[in-house]
Amino acid sequence: MTGGQQHDSLMARARLEGLPSGEMVLADKAYDATEIRTFVRLRGGWANIPTRRNQRDPICLSPYLYRHRNHVERFLNRMKHCRRIATRYEKHATNFLAFVKLAAIRLWLRVNASTA
């Protein structure tokens, strides 16, 4: 966990260290960096990240696969409806993760609950 004021792209390489080889990385334009793409390529993976406007050479992007990132973003938005998660009340990462799991279970039950 990083501080809320720290940009996520600064920690991207550290987060990708645990990436299994041959995996695909879906990210938004904020993660469009040569270092990230090179790191993923060296691990045998593929970075499906759209290029920023200031890039001269466009990089291949699969719009079909990029849609899946939108599903994840919408899920995270729903998770942030829980105030305890959105404001990070918990000081310890284990407690925060426990509340994230509880919120995910709550969302899953809401979507998959029987209407009968």
Rank of each mutant, 00 (worst) to 15 (best):
I36C: 03
N54V: 02
L109K: 11
L61N: 03
E17W: 10
E73V: 04
R110F: 07
L76H: 14
V25H: 03
L107Y: 09
E23T: 09
A93V: 06
H81F: 04
G18F: 15
R43A: 09
R84G: 01
I105L: 05
N70T: 06
H92G: 06
Y64C: 15
F39E: 06
A104G: 02
R78G: 02
K80R: 09
E35V: 09
I49Q: 05
S62A: 06
D57Y: 15
D8Y: 07
S9M: 11
Q5I: 10
R78Y: 04
A93Q: 03
R56E: 15
Y31D: 08
N112P: 14
A93T: 07
G18D: 11
D28R: 00
L61A: 01
I85E: 01
E73I: 06
R13I: 15
R53Y: 07
Y31C: 05
E73K: 00
V111E: 08
M24A: 12
A113K: 12
C82V: 09
P20Y: 07
H92K: 06
L97M: 12
A98I: 02
Q5D: 13
W108T: 15
L10C: 11
H68G: 08
Y64T: 15
N95Y: 03
C82P: 03
L109R: 12
M11H: 15
G4Y: 10
L42S: 15
E35W: 13
R83D: 08
K101Q: 07
A93L: 06
R37A: 02
T2V: 14
R37S: 01
N77R: 12
G4V: 09
L107H: 07
Q5N: 13
I49C: 03
I36Q: 04
N77K: 13
K101D: 00
A14Q: 11
V111L: 10
F96W: 05
A30H: 04
I85Y: 00
W108E: 04
E73N: 04
A47H: 02
P63Q: 05
D57F: 14
L102G: 05
E90C: 00
K101L: 05
G18R: 15
D28Y: 01
V111G: 10
V25D: 00
T51K: 08
E17Q: 13
L107P: 09
N95W: 03
N95M: 06
P58W: 03
Y31M: 07
P63H: 02
M24H: 13
R13Q: 13
L10T: 12
E90G: 00
